[in-house]
Design a protein around this nucleic acid. Structure first.
Lengths: 347, 347
DNA sequence: TTGTAAGCGTTATCAC
DNA sequence: GTGATAACGCTTACAA
């Protein structure tokens, strides 16, 4: 097993007739180098085909210019869209991304994942796993203190934790209020699993809007599904059996709304004439459902970008002061997208 | 700016009363360590809260246990699903993932991306960017030789390049043959951009099946769209204006099929009675379209897993022999999923 | 089985 | 502006 000798900064230095330190300076620009030597150095670099070694640089710098992203459910629209935003902003700021996927949102491997990221000396972490059950019980100020800066996506506020999230409660309120505004009075909700914090928030938004309007938001109007179109189909069936007079349904994502739509087609319920349906997420497909889906748009890529920016800020500040960086909290507002399925005339 | 002194392998060694080399051996298991010292070492590790530094290890090992993934279009179903497969298999084999996203499939940043990956000393690369236009013109044996092992996803065969891909041509043939089998005779196709290799393959599968059956596959039956549902809607309109007698359409992805479905609803064309529609990809939603979409399933996660396995093999072999590793080529077969939109009774 | 010491490829400190 | 030289934290001959 042979190895072709790798070209190092030392080889470049020799060829250019300077010292390794000077080559480093020319490369990083951290201190001035005279134009002539600079010129010689870069010629040597191309002649030798020198490839800088970021691993060595990371070692001595104690910083890898890398962000660890821990995510779940990349096969779904939301997480993958957010990841795109993360990657773009990270690239703009000069970071590479180390990607770790959990197989389940409530995976018990958390510590192993964190150890891995620490071992690789990431400069910061973005925790893009939904808050489900007690999967964030590991978070506390002491633990956070032993980690590089971390930004959590969309979770319940916790002391010491920096959070960037969508205002799910407002999103659900928007959707429900819209149904109320167009004259609906018996409004059901198809939830995702109630172990998800986001679901509980959306449920709160729904019942809040109904309560404020003096309308019913009792348990029979609530049904739990599992985010899939299939579960949405089953859910609306149950809902309508329980309460045949329901005239509107708010589904906690577009896929379940799609399932509900399908059920209505198959069973002669006209949407939106007999029943209004509203979704959540604004997936690209939702505009082409039949009828086109009224839904709530989350700014997912923006969420990712903001998270990276906040993380970057924390990384920088951490390097400058020895005092702990105060946690931040940013909330992004979703927006209602009115289409055909609710029955209002889109403007 | 203060730094809390990091615990190194040396500190552990001192505390355990052994040499650093022995600690390393205990950690990696590369050479035997007596049970007693092992015990002492691990106690020291936990007492000190030692965190191994993979950056240092990568430097001396000249291998980072990292795979670079270059991808495009993560907001779409296919790429994100494939990435999940890649991540799972990579994790199983002990690799971390370095993720690089291109903003456009025909991005000109290729060299910058490669340089970045080389600088970080990835052990291998998975190129998950679709083949579009001449965006793979940079690939040649000489260039590949200067890179770590690379696996390309779904592209036209090229000398020296290892490829893992879906058999798009067969997939399209399957879909078209199905339409022929159920009695359709005037079968149009809604393509993605013809600059995409996959599109040209699917087109070839479509026309191949038609030709074999003695049916027409002339240009008026072909229309190019851009993968979006909206473009699918426009495309079928044009197609039907050109050829009102069309009785079936094969759309090159599910989203365009969805757009086509929507057009038919809006214009009183009954699917599948008047017109059969078949898609490609088998997105989770497609089973809940109205009518449920007949489509072609790609094994996307499997594609990613196979790619990682092949890459792993190449990385290993490269380390063992000085001879160049022969490129491999793996083709995965897609499968037809019959639902309602084609008109055949699903079995 | 364990210790010693020489790297791995950079950057940073201190002189000049 | 530039050159020695000592780290950075780990692995691995080579000895013992």
């Amino acid at each position: 097993m042979e190895r072709k000798p790798t070209v190092t900064i030392i080889d470049v230095a020799q060829r250019a007739g300077v010292s390794p330190g000077t080559v480093s300076n020319a490369l990083t620009g951290k201190r001035p180098v005279s134009p002539e030597t600079r010129e010689r150095i870069f010629r040597a670099i191309t002649e030798l085909g020198y490839q800088p070694n970021l691993v060595a640089r990371s070692l001595v710098n104690r910083s890898s210019k890398t962000i660890g992203v821990v995510a779940f459910g990349l096969e779904f629209y939301g997480p993958s869209r957010t990841l795109v935003g993360i990657e773009q902003q990270a690239a703009d700021l000069g970071y590479s991304l180390l990607l770790d996927l959990l197989h389940r949102p409530d995976s018990k491997d958390v510590e192993a994942v964190l150890d891995e990221l620490i071992a690789r000396r990431v400069d910061g972490i973005i925790w893009a796993v939904h808050e489900v059950g007690d999967n964030r019980s590991w978070i506390n100020e002491r633990r956070l203190h032993s980690l590089p800066p971390v930004i959590f996506l969309t979770m319940e506020p916790r002391p010491g934790a920096s959070i960037v999230s969508t205002d799910n409660r407002t999103g659900a309120r928007l959707a429900t209020q819209h149904l109320i505004d167009i004259g609906r009075r018996n409004i059901g909700i198809i939830c995702g699993p109630s172990s998800w914090w986001e679901v509980r928030e959306r449920l709160a938004g729904w019942s809040g809007a109904l309560g404020a309007a003096g309308l019913e938001s009792s348990p029979p109007l609530i049904i739990e599904a599992n985010w899939t179109a299939r579960s949405g189909e089953d859910a609306i069936k149950t809902l309508l059996e329980r309460r045949p007079n329901i005239d509107a349904v708010f589904a906690c994502n577009d896929q379940m709304a799609l399932g509900a739509l399908r059920y209505c087609h198959a069973n002669g319920r006209r949407v939106p004439d007999d029943l209004s349906i509203v979704g959540f997420d604004n997936t690209p497909e939702s505009a082409y459902f039949w009828p086109a889906l009224t839904t709530v748009r989350q700014h997912l890529a923006e969420l990712g970008r903001v998270a990276v920016n906040e993380l970057h800020r924390q990384i920088e500040r951490r390097g400058q002061s020895k005092y702990p960086v105060p946690p931040v909290s940013r909330v992004l507002q979703p927006e209602l997208i009115v289409r055909e399925s609710s029955g209002a005339k889109p403007e």
